[in-house]
Simulated scan of single mutants.
Amino acid sequence: MRCAYARSQDPDDPLAGLVVGDLPEPAAPEGWTSVTVRTVALNHHDLWSLRGVGLPGDRLPMILGTDAAGVLDDGTEVIVHSVVPSPGWQGEETLDPRRTLLSELHPGTLAERVRVPARNVVPKDPAISWPEAACLPTAYLTAYRMLFDAAALRPGQTVLVQGAGGGVATAATVLARAAGLRVWVTSRSDTKRARALEIGAHEAFETGARLPEQVDAVLETVGEATWSHSLKALRPGGTVAVAGATSGAMPPADLSRIFFRSLRVVGTTMGTRDQLVALQQMLLATGARPVIDSVVRLDDVPAALGRMADGDVVGKVVVELDA
């Protein structure tokens, strides 16, 4: 089976351990189903796995990829939900402390076929294209949950999205604008700020710039480099929703600002299957669609991940497999 997998790991040179080649097709545990993969979206999670973060070395070789859209054996077109709870878990899957994502314990989606729990597939609406569908399960689902669950934003409120250009930040810009929010973004890059305005941001600012007014919520995936600015940007009682820390996870906490101004710091990761269903329904109702940087073939995955590592991507890179 053709796939892209981690053969080895290197924190300084993650692409050194990436292989596009053949591995045996994994067996399906009882209660799981097989999906013939049509499209996969790349994520920074793939680079972290190649660096040795979140993927123990004794699980190598591991097929990479968390996002996919494809076809069941009976012809049903589906989107794959990547969060896999532990056996016997009851309740919301994202709250299971032993949950994993595809490519952490079980083989991932960057392959001709992937096996997932039967519950982890969502019917794909024909109005959503294959490349668009592949973008939903990680970046867009994470952004959806940050906006409407963690930050509990409502139409007319103002949200600041740190780090415009990244997958989750781009998704948040698109979804927030579609939901009737006022959307502000930050980036160090003139090009990424301009692109954010094109896809729906109302205003785009230099990273760390003083804003015209304080905001209702901040979406934080950058971490140390933007944390102080995120807290200062919030109105009293505002919320910072945190779903990542690409620049470092240990900034000064600034606890006095948090308690004195009654700020809320809410951590969140991925989303539930039900939220994935709701996300697709939102796209259908609003006409909003994922921003796609490029569509590549499986053999192009190393070069595409290299572009991601260099920060040379706006939106999602989608891998298209042969039908």
Rank of each mutant, 00 (worst) to 15 (best):
M1Y: 06
M1N: 11
M1S: 14
A6L: 10
Q9P: 09
D12W: 12
D13Y: 10
P14H: 07
L15V: 07
G17S: 08
V20M: 03
D22I: 10
P24G: 04
A27G: 14
W32H: 15
R38N: 13
V40K: 01
N43T: 13
L50R: 00
G65A: 05
A69Q: 03
L72Q: 09
G75A: 07
E77N: 05
E77D: 15
V83L: 15
W89S: 05
Q90P: 08
Q90E: 15
E93F: 13
L95N: 13
T100C: 11
E104C: 01
H106G: 00
T109V: 13
A118P: 01
R119W: 10
N120D: 11
D125V: 07
D125W: 07
P126R: 12
W130P: 04
L136A: 08
A150W: 01
A151K: 02
L153I: 10
R154N: 11
R154I: 10
G156W: 08
G163L: 07
A164H: 01
A164F: 03
A164C: 06
G167F: 07
T170V: 15
A172N: 08
A178G: 14
S187L: 08
S189G: 09
D190A: 15
T191S: 14
K192C: 04
E198K: 14
A201W: 09
A204T: 10
T207L: 09
A209H: 06
R210C: 12
P212I: 09
L219H: 00
H229L: 03
S230M: 03
K232Y: 10
G238W: 02
A241H: 05
V242G: 02
A243R: 02
G244L: 04
G244M: 05
A245V: 01
T246A: 15
G248I: 03
R257I: 05
R257A: 14
F260N: 13
R273V: 13
L276D: 03
A278G: 10
A288T: 00
A288C: 05
R289C: 00
R289P: 02
R289E: 08
S294D: 15
L298G: 11
V301C: 00
P302A: 02
R307T: 05
R307K: 13
D310Q: 15
D312G: 11
K316W: 07
